[in-house]
């Protein structure tokens, strides 16, 4: 008897597949970081705007206002810092090391409809060689359940044995998991360095996604910044572009992220996702501390104000990689 010849019986397989697909349709997707999934445009008029913007007929940047004066000042200072502080030089044989602490939301639904929400922490440590064609090294702690909002969820997570999958990955060109584009999915060389044109190009890529046109543009900027590998000229342009987004404002003067304190700049959303995307900047140095998504209304066991996802990054140059 050879086990490798055993297959799941066809009749069962077919029925189970149907039942699973039905079940999957029935269960709503409960809790994820709001990313580029929700359509906010519904009317034909809005679709026409998309066509005009996407066709370069109309640009959304510039004529609809911008960030508040205080937020714009912080962002423009950060842009100045980015330009003044040259990127660290990575000599042959050395690595650019991007260390980050990341918090991700997790949720689970039981058959009786009861839901559990908690937060996982994942430490990432990425080593990028001087020549990107060489081998990159990525140490991932896996997602460790770290934050619970009630005892019942803690017990549930412990009982079900949710556990991290630590990984040590190596790949030339950063092509981890066999993905040819590497782990950053945006081609940064193709993005304009002029803030106005950059913001228009961001709108074109994010239009129709996320909870609002301006909210999603800020999410795009935060997503890119948190990779920790954005070159200084683009970083400066991203800050200036954020300063041009209507509704962007200072949301907290003393925001704490992973033990560091900075100014949080975000945009309050009225869309369905009940979250606010923020970028956190060290006011003294103008350097980026990280980004986070804040819950603006309670969700399940999580109170309003909970950071349901955040990333704090630190970059340095090292001579060795694990």
């Amino acid at each position: 008897m050879n086990l490798s010849e055993v297959t799941y019986p066809k009749d069962t397989k077919y029925r189970v597949q149907n039942l699973l697909v039905q079940e999957a349709r029935r269960k709503p997707n409960l809790f994820r970081r709001p990313r580029r999934t929700r359509l906010w445009l519904t009317t034909a008029a809005a679709a026409a705007v998309v066509a005009l913007v996407a066709g370069d007929v109309v640009g959304l940047a510039g004529w609809r206002g911008g960030a508040t004066a205080q937020a714009a000042e912080v962002l423009n200072n950060a842009a100045e810092t980015a330009i003044m502080t040259a990127d660290p030089v990575v000599n042959p044989g050395q690595y650019l090391r991007v260390k980050s602490t990341n918090v991700w939301g997790s949720a689970s639904t039981e058959a009786d409809g009861s839901t559990y929400e908690w937060l996982d922490t994942e430490k990432l440590d990425l080593y990028i060689p001087a020549d990107p064609a060489d081998e990159w090294v990525w140490v991932r702690s896996g997602r460790v359940p770290t934050t619970f909002f009630d005892a019942r969820t803690k017990e549930y997570v412990e009982k079900n044995g949710f556990k991290p999958f630590p990984e040590l990955l190596r790949a030339p060109n950063g092509s981890f998991y066999g993905s040819p584009g590497g782990w950053v999915h945006t081609d940064m060389s193709a993005l304009p360095r002029d803030p106005y044109r950059l913001l228009n190009s961001i709108y074109k890529q994010t239009l129709g996604k996320g909870q609002s046109v301006d909210g999603e543009a800020l999410v795009f900027i935060a997503d890119l910044l948190r990779t920790g590998v954005v070159p200084a000229d683009l970083r400066a342009a991203l800050y200036k572009a954020a300063a041009m987004i209507p509704g962007v404002t200072i949301t907290e003067n003393q925001a704490n992220l992973d033990g560091r304190t900075g100014i949080a700049i975000g945009r309050t959303e009225e869309g369905p996702s009940k979250t606010r995307q923020e970028i956190i900047i060290d006011a003294a140095t103008g350097l980026l501390i990280g980004e986070r998504a804040i819950l603006t209304e309670p969700q399940g066991s999580m109170p309003a104000g909970t950071a349901i996802g955040w990333t704090a990054i630190e970059t340095s140059v090292t001579n060795t990689a694990p």
């Binding site: 699973l20 997707n29 939301g105 689970s108 949710f162 993905s179």
Partner: peptide
Amino acid sequence: AWRQRDRLRPERD
């Protein structure tokens, strides 16, 4: 797996 689908980052091969 469906219930825990948010726990897996989708970039695995």
